[in-house]
Amino acid sequence: MQEHSIGAEQKTQVPKMPPTKQPLDAPENRPPLFKRWRSWYVLVIGVLALLILLFYLFTNRYD
């Protein structure tokens, strides 16, 4: 169910756009290498944490 208000805001309604033919779980939208997108997200966070740690060691090493 989608809500549309009638009155002043009715003038600003836009035609509903056609939905895409690609649902999120469609084969062409599955992630490469991993089974789930969550694994990619964990990888990105993990690399960031590792970089911060390495930068911290780098700062201390040359200070």
Partner: peptide, 19 residues
Amino acid sequence: RSIRESRMGLLLNGLVKVP
């Protein structure tokens, strides 16, 4: 061309930008 292509572009940007 798909949600996957958008996501991969963005996530790889997240991996390479800081280094």
